[in-house]
Each structure stands twice: as C-alpha cells, then as structure tokens.
C-alpha cells in the first residue's frame, strides 16, 4: 500500500475533533473569566479608588494569582480539559503555562529544573509576542515619520 492510500485510510478511521460543543464551552468559560476580571477591575476602581491604569494592573495581578493558585491545587488542568481555548487564551492560561512546568520540573532542582524549564511552554509566546510588539512599534514609528507627525 502506498503512503497516500494509507493516509486516506487513517483519515477515514480517525475520529475528528468536535467543533460546536467545545466552542460553546470555550465561549462561556472564557467569558466567565473575563467577567471575573471586569468584576475585579470594578472593585479596584470603585472600592480601592485606583485610577484606570492601576486598576488594570490590579486585575492582572489578581487573575494571575488565582490561576497560579488553582494550577497548584490541581484544578486548572481540569478546567482546561473542559474549556479548551476558553481557559488558555485569557491571562490565566498564560499563568497556568508558566506555573505548570515550574511545578513539574521542581524535582530537577531550582536552577536546571524550575529556572530552566519554567518558560518551556510560554517561551515561544514571549519570544514571538515581544518580537511582534517591537515590529509593530517600528512600523508605527515609520508611519508617523512619513506622515510628518514626528
């Protein structure tokens, strides 16, 4: 049997990932996390009288803390199994992707384990996220320069 023919057989026999139900779950869980974030922001602004920027930082810090806590308690991966991208895309997913390898590789020590492996999963996001923002900054600067606004 040729590889192409086998590929067809494999495709026919392999179950497809479901689309609709996971989308709905992701929508609601992701939405709930963002609503929680908005709630924290409101508390920051109204109860703690923080300005807009400080309230944003306050929200991020709280969400990251909660995500790290629930990762440590072994609950965030259960949420991830249920919600998929709904719990990966918000900032809590990013915190989970840093905390989980840090926990996993603690046994290899704080330098070569936690230190070296902490950004195992989040590393590519940081590298390309920061690269993209630098690129965006350069383009923005050029556009302003050409437009004569600098």
């Amino acid at each position: 049997m040729q590889q192409k023919e086998y590929e067809k057989l494999v495709k026919a026999k392999s179950p497809k990932s479901k689309v609709i139900l996971p989308l709905i779950k992701a929508f609601f869980v992701g939405g709930a996390i963002c609503t929680l974030g908005q709630g924290i922001r409101e508390i920051g602004e109204k109860c703690l009288s923080l300005d807009e920027q400080a309230a944003g930082c306050f929200t991020s810090v709280c969400l990251i803390f909660l995500s790290a806590l629930f990762t440590g308690l072994g609950l965030y991966d259960e949420l991830g199994k249920f919600a998929g991208a709904g719990s990966i895309v918000p900032i809590t997913g990013f915190a989970n992707s840093v905390v989980s390898p840090a926990m996993e590789f603690k046994r290899e020590g704080y330098v070569m384990g936690v230190g070296a492996k902490m950004f195992n999963v989040a590393g590519p996001v940081l590298v390309y996220g920061i690269s993209a923002s630098v690129l965006y900054g350069v383009i923005y600067w050029l556009v302003l320069l050409i437009g004569g606004k600098l």
Binding site: K81, N96, E104, N120
Partner: peptide, 13 residues
Amino acid sequence: RFPLELGSQRPPS
C-alpha cells in the same frame, strides 16, 4: 508531551 497541570485538551485519537 506537556506538564501535568497544563490546562490543555487532547485530540480524540
């Protein structure tokens, strides 16, 4: 694969 506590999903295969 991935760390145990990472909230990722697995494909059905």
